[in-house]
Every structure is written in C-alpha cells, then in structure tokens.
Design a protein around this nucleic acid. Structure first.
Lengths: 194, 194
DNA sequence: AAAAGCTTTTGCCATTTGGCAAATAGTGAA
DNA sequence: TTCACTATTTGCCAAATGGCAAAAGCTTTT
C-alpha cells in the first residue's frame, strides 16, 4: 500500500465529520508524517508532554499506565482508523501519566503540535471536525467502560470478543487481561471454559 | 437562596471556560429555566429523545440504564456545578437508552434545545465554551472509570470516598453499589470492614 | 405509638477470582 | 534443529464476591 492510499484512509475519515476541498486536503496531506512502529515500540512516554497526535492507518496501539500498586494497566486499545492522543496532557500541555505502545507493527500518520496549529489557522472547518472526532471518541470510551464494571469477567471477555472480533487474537493475553481488569491466569481459564 | 444567586453559580461556571459580556450573561439567564426535582423524580426517561440540558445548582442526579440481565445500573452520578445530558442521544437526536433520576432533591437550571440553539446563534463564544465543558466532562468520566476496572471492590469504594467525600452519605447504598459494580450486600460488608 | 414501607445488615453457602509457582507451548535467533 | 526467551496454561489453595432470604434498622404515614 502506498503512502497516498494511506493518506486517503485518513482523508476519508476526516470527511465523515465535515467537508474539505481539494486544496485543504492537499494541505492536510502535506502536514502529516508517516511513522512506522515495530511491535513493542513506544509512541509516547509517561512524564513527557505529548507533542504529536497519531492517526492509525494500520495496527493496534495501547494506552497504559502504572497504578498505585505498580501494576501495568492497559487503559484502552486504539486500532485502525482512529486517532490516538492523550487528551489530558496534550490540551493542557502537562506531562502525561500515560504511555502509548505499539501492540502490533503499526503505520501511523503523525501530526505535530505545530502542524495542528497551522491546520487550525488555515482550515476554517478544522476545529469543528476535530471537536466532533474528539467527542465521539470520548463518548465511545465511556460507553465501552461503563458496562464493563457491571459485568463479571467472563461476560466482559465475551463482550470484548463481540465488539472487537478481530482484535482479541492480535493482542497478547496479558495486555487484554489488564484491560479487562483480571489476571492473565483468570483470562486463560475463562478462555478455556468457552 | 434566590434564583439570582442560583444563576450566578451557573454563570461563574461558564466563565471558567470563556469570556462573556454582561449582555450575553443576561441573555443566558433569560434562557435558563429553574426546575426543582424531588428525590426520586425523573429528569429524562429512556426511549425518549432528550430535549433539554440541565445545570445542577443543588443536589445529585444519577444516569442509569438496564443492562441485558435486567439489572438497573447506575452509569454515573452528577452533582452540583455540573451539566447533565445524554450526549449520545441529544446530539444525534435519537431515543435515549438511559434515564436520569434525582438522587436527592435538586435545583436545576434547564436549557431547552431551542434555547441552546438561540444561544449558539447569538453568542459567538458559546459553542467553544460548550465544547470545552463537554470535553472536560467526558475526559473526567473516562479517567474515573478506567482505574475502577483494575481495582477490587474495597479499593473502588475507598477511591470513591476520596474523590467524592461528600457524596457517599447522600446516596442510597443500592445506587452506589450498582455504580461500583458490586451487590449491595457486598458493599455493606465492605463498609463494615473499614 | 403502631403500622407499613423502605433501606441496610447478616448468615450461609456456592462460585468466581487472585496469588504463586511450575509446567507447557510457542517464537525467533543462531 | 536446538537454545533461549517469552507467552500461556494449569494446579493448588486462599480470598473475594454473589445469590438468596431473613433480620434489623429507619422513615413516613396514620
């Protein structure tokens, strides 16, 4: 797949949230930078102020942190056709308490803070589009997380399989377990029981 | 407390997110309607398209739904100095799967869809302010929910006490239990163990 | 004060999940 | 292929949580 096809994936995604003319589209393409990550690579690290936003063209990222007990917790996964950013820290320019890691090899389209600023200043619809994308992503996260609390581990796993049928087999068991809020041995037993 | 004081609480809240001149403030006050709810009253009901947004001047609301097992789940609580709205349904004009109920007697300031539309058309900063408020509220929800999955029930309860020291004793045990994702007998035992 | 209607606590026992360590399976490198 | 390394499964037992129903505690109404 060429870089141009890659870009089209991003552009089509943006077009779902607002109109853009060809000139604007070209500008966006010029501002994006292609970044390839290998499985296990980090996209951003805890303690630093995030300086970029990524659109995932291919692959899976996970956003994680260490809880007070020192356990590594996977806060959520982000997969193809979604943006990944630590909103807290990015907007407020404060060091992140989270880090972002590639779960599989990834192809990302990255926008720097400066690029985003330029796009916002040049493309009149930009902020509106970004706001819609942000809001939608956040609402989805809340809607995914809320029901999980009310379910037992097995149901959570089954729900995950339903919602992300093509994710479970690409994610190491330990990551998935920490996302589901259970130990990996429990998840292993749950798997067996199905 | 008079209605005017009430309005000031709202205005001060809005001013945290953007500037407003006196004329704009007066317009906002005129568009708001005071609504008193008794404990147990419903602010909105499942199956209907929400037609209003509420700012909570006094009291606690809870947003809930019935899960597939027929259990009533408290998705979250909203208390003083926050807006309550079912974003999914409100924005997309689709029937809500949630309902909103007063946990305590409440004083709300309510904006109808039409009022919001007028404010958006008249006050140039309005959409920006609302976007910031929305995003902040959603980010907070995600940040509250995520760690809960990784904690056991007792820790979840203790975290809740820390984050909302003045809420726990105003909320019936059964509501709190369903928010924490445990049965009310378990929560009762956890309480005793502390 | 008594009755009725809630809410919260308890007892009892079954089930789920965690903790830890060892065994097994799988993967990539040499 | 074999080694080294990592991921997953399993066994064993302890701890946490659920389900259900009865008891105890509170509130509100009469």
């Amino acid at each position: 797949m060429t870089i141009f096809a890659t870009m089209d994936k991003l552009i089509n995604y943006l077009l779902e949230f607002g109109q853009l003319n060809q000139q604007q589209i070209d500008l966006i393409k010029r501002k994006a930078r292609v970044l390839a990550l290998k499985k296990g690579d980090y996209f951003s690290e805890a303690g630093k102020i995030p300086k970029q936003v990524a659109f995932i063209e291919e692959g899976i990222l996970r956003v994680c942190y260490y809880n007070s007990g020192g356990d590594e917790i996977t806060k959520y996964f982000v997969d193809e056709n979604n943006f990944a950013v630590d909103i807290n820290s990015f907007n407020q320019k404060i060091p992140s308490s989270e880090y972002v890691q590639a779960v599989t090899d990834c192809t990302l389209l990255v926008f720097s803070t400066e690029s985003l600023h330029d796009l916002s200043a040049t493309i009149i619809q930009w902020d509106g589009i970004i706001n819609k994308i942000t809001e939608k992503a956040l609402v989805e996260k809340v809607n995914k997380l809320s029901p999980m609390l009310a379910e037992d581990a097995k149901t959570r796993y089954l729900s995950f399989l339903e919602k992300f049928p093509n994710l479970a087999n690409r994610i190491p068991l330990s990551y998935l377990a920490s996302y589901l809020g259970i130990t990996q041995s429990s998840l292993s037993r749950i798997r067996k029981s199905i």
